[in-house]
Amino acid sequence: MKSPNKYLFLFLMVSSTCMVASSSNWLTTWMGLEINMLGYIPLMFMKENTSESEAAVKYLIPQSLGSTIFIASAIVSSHFNNSQILMLMAMCLKLGVAPLHFWFPPVMASLQLTPAFILLTWQKIAPILAISSFNPPLVKSIMPIAMISALWGGIMGLNQTDIRSLLTYSSISHTGWMLASISSNSIILIAYLTTYIMINSSIFTFLTKESASSYKQLFSPKEPTKLFILAVSILSLGGLPPLVGFVMKLLVLMNTEAKLIIILGLVIGALTSLFFYLSLTFSTLLSFNKMRMTKTEMTSSQTIMFLLSQILPLSLILFFF
C-alpha cells in the first residue's frame, strides 16, 4: 500500500463495518455493506496485474447481486414477512458460505496476501453482524447452511496442496461455525471472530515473509522455531485441543440452540478439517525434538503474533465469563 489513497479506502472499509454494526434499519445496513464493498475493491490492486482485475470483477458481481437481493427483499418485507429469508440468503452469498461459495476460491487464488487476509477476516464481519440483527427464529432457518458450509469446507480441503486454498476452504468451514454461534450468544460470536482473526494474523505474518505456495515448500526445514509456531497456529485454526481454536468451538457447541443433526455436521466438518491440518504439520511436529531454538528467533514478529493469537482470545473469554 504505497499510495496514500489506499488509506482512504481502508478507512471507508473500517467505518462502513462500524456503520453496519450500529445501524437501526435495513437501509443503513445496505448502505454500510455497499460502502464496505466499494472500499475493499481498490485494496485488491497491489501489483496492478490482470489477475487482480479478474479477481475484482469476480468479487464485484456476486457482491452486487447480494446487495441487490438484500435491498429488494427489505423493501418487499414491509408487505410480506416471508421475503426476509431472501435477505439472509443475500448475506450468505456475500459471506461466501456453501453452497453459495462459487466466487470465493477463484477470488482468493488471484489475490496477493494482504487483500486475501482482509477478505478472509474483516470482510466477514459486516455480513455476520447483519445476520445477527435478524429475529432469532429467522436466524435458526440458516442453521442447515452452517452445517453444509462446515462439511463442504472440510471435505474440499482434503484435496488441496496450496496453502492459500487450504485457508480458503478452512474459512468456509469457520464461517459455518460463526453462523452457528449467532444462535448462541453475541459474546461468543465476538470471541469466535476475534479468535479467527488473530490466528489468521499469526499465519499470514509468517506467509508474508515466505515465498512458498505449496505446504511442502512451506514446511521445509529452514528456521525451526518459526516452523513450530506456524504448525501450532494452523492446528489451532483446525481446532486441536487444548489450543484456543478448540476452546472457541467447544463454547459454540455448549451454547448453540441448533438441532443435534446440525451439531453433528459441524463436528464432522471440524474433524475433517483437523485431519488435513494434522497431515500437513505432522512431519514438522515429529522432527521438532531434533531442532534447536535460538534466542534471536524467539523475539521475532511471528512469535509475538503467535502469542497474541493464543492469549488475547482467552483473555476475552475470561473477561466476559
Rank of each mutant, 00 (worst) to 15 (best):
A180E: 00
G265P: 08
K290C: 01
R164L: 13
F306M: 05
W103Q: 10
L166C: 10
Q310W: 06
Y40N: 04
M178E: 03
Y7G: 01
S273D: 05
P242K: 07
L95N: 11
M91K: 08
F276R: 15
T281H: 05
A126T: 07
Y59M: 09
K6H: 09
T121Q: 06
S211W: 02
P105W: 01
Q123F: 04
T29N: 11
L312S: 13
S149Y: 02
H101C: 03
S78H: 12
S23P: 12
S78R: 14
F282G: 02
T225S: 14
S220F: 12
K249A: 03
A116M: 14
S183Q: 02
L113K: 11
V107K: 04
L218A: 12
Q112D: 14
L119Y: 00
G96L: 04
M305V: 01
P313W: 10
P313G: 12
S211I: 02
Y40H: 05
T303M: 11
M91A: 10
A126W: 15
P127N: 08
Y277C: 11
E257R: 09
G176E: 10
V244D: 02
K259N: 11
F228C: 08
S16P: 02
V232T: 08
I128E: 00
A150G: 04
T28E: 09
A109M: 10
Q112T: 05
I125M: 12
C92G: 13
Q310M: 14
G265D: 11
S83F: 12
T284A: 05
L179C: 04
L308K: 03
I268T: 15
S301V: 06
P127R: 09
T299P: 01
P136Q: 08
H101S: 06
I187M: 11
P99Y: 00
I187Y: 03
K124M: 03
L278E: 12
F206P: 10
P106W: 05
S279F: 08
L237K: 02
S16N: 05
L271V: 12
F282D: 15
L111M: 06
A109V: 09
F206L: 08
Y196T: 02
M293N: 06
P4M: 00
V139L: 06
V76H: 12
L43Q: 04
M19S: 13
Y196D: 02
N36Y: 05
Q63P: 14
D162S: 13
S315C: 05
L43A: 04
V107E: 06
N82R: 14
G269L: 00
G269Y: 00
V232A: 02
F117K: 10
T208E: 14
Q217L: 15
